[in-house]
Amino acid sequence: QDPLTATMLATAPPQEQKQMLGERLFPLISQMFPDLAGKITGMLLEIDNSELLHMLESQESLEAKVKEAVAVLQAHQAKESAT
């Protein structure tokens, strides 16, 4: 599959752009957190498209953001189950 570029994204409507980015991010996130991939991808899709494109190119920045999102999600779930 060809890498997703800003030019390719720009040709699609905004909602479709997020779907396109999600399709690329989801498999990568699934490798790290199979059970949380859908939720984590959804959380990350709120980030600017330009930053998401960068994360697709940089495993390191993607991992950092994914871990951040997982930590936030788990803290939230722990808080919910405590109440």
């Binding site: 779907q19 999600g22 399709e23 991010l25 989801f26 498999p27 991939a37 859908g38 939720k39 991808t41 959804g42 959380m43 990350l44 899709l45 709120e46 980030i47 600017d48 953001k65 951040e68 999102a69 936030v72 999600l73 939230h76």
Partner: peptide
């Protein structure tokens, strides 16, 4: 708490197209 993109636990879950019917 301040809204931080990528940390919003209420964000909608992403469904990849291969899982859609």
């Amino acid at each position: 708490p301040a809204f931080v993109p990528g940390q919003n636990v209420y964000a909608a879950e992403f469904v990849p197209s291969f899982q859609k019917s």
